[in-house]
Amino acid sequence: MITLGFDIGTRYIKACVVRDEKIMGYSIRESGRNIREIIDTTREECVHAAGVKKREIKKTVSTGYGASLIHDADRQIGIEQCLSKAAWTLNGYCTSIVDIGGLFIHVIRIDAHGKPADSCENETCASGSGKLLEIISGSMNIPLSSLSETAIRSSNPHFLTSSCAVFAESEIVSLSNQGASKSDLILGILQSIASKVAGYADRVDTGSGMVISGGVAKVDAFKTILGKSMNREISKIPIDPQITGAYGAALIAGDMEIKFSGFFGSFKKDRKIKENK
């Protein structure tokens, strides 16, 4: 069965085509001015990458801040459910997922059935989110993809004193003007984001198997830094971390069908639960 998941985030629009829990193709596009066109392009790209025909897609589920934009979605599902579903499907032993996106940070505890048991979201403050990283990488002229290698060169991180993302930027600019090394600054920022995220994560009983996803998870060094600041091992989600929500949405779309198809589907699910225990 082929399903499509949409995750309309605050910064990027993600689509993912899934067949029997396997990703067939996905697409990520920056959101912007002509939102309808962007969505259509994302959908087409994704379907094309998956090598399927549009009519073969049986169910569509949308999630994220702009979930209502997908008019033809069979259902709109909360992002917490999608993230838990995705993490749990990929790794039955995981107990929690931390998703750091453009503006939102989600920390979710996952129960034995892949459902969110408890969750925590950042308050109206972007100081730990991907947006801060994006702003800073822009003003320092370091692409997001090379943040990680820049950070690992440093052994003497510069701690940021300002908790506001915009003022963090001005602090960075002035520190950088004073001759501070870029890698020290980047490591400092990653650590300050990690400490923010760790603060949120402390509010939820995250258990021993923590998985990290979202755009910020693409910065490899961040996983290690967060792990250090929380004193534990954290694993990165084994797919492109940015499409975790979309993948989860597609999986849930698949489940909707399983419920109708009866016995076989539910049998498979039960086995999974046993393995998990």
Binding site: T10, Y65, L103, T124, K131, C164
Partner: peptide
């Protein structure tokens, strides 16, 4: 309240 979280309101209208 916050120039970054202003973006949420903006995105809501956009969406």
């Amino acid at each position: 309240k916050c120039s970054i979280f202003m973006e949420l309101d903006v995105m809501r209208r956009l969406y």
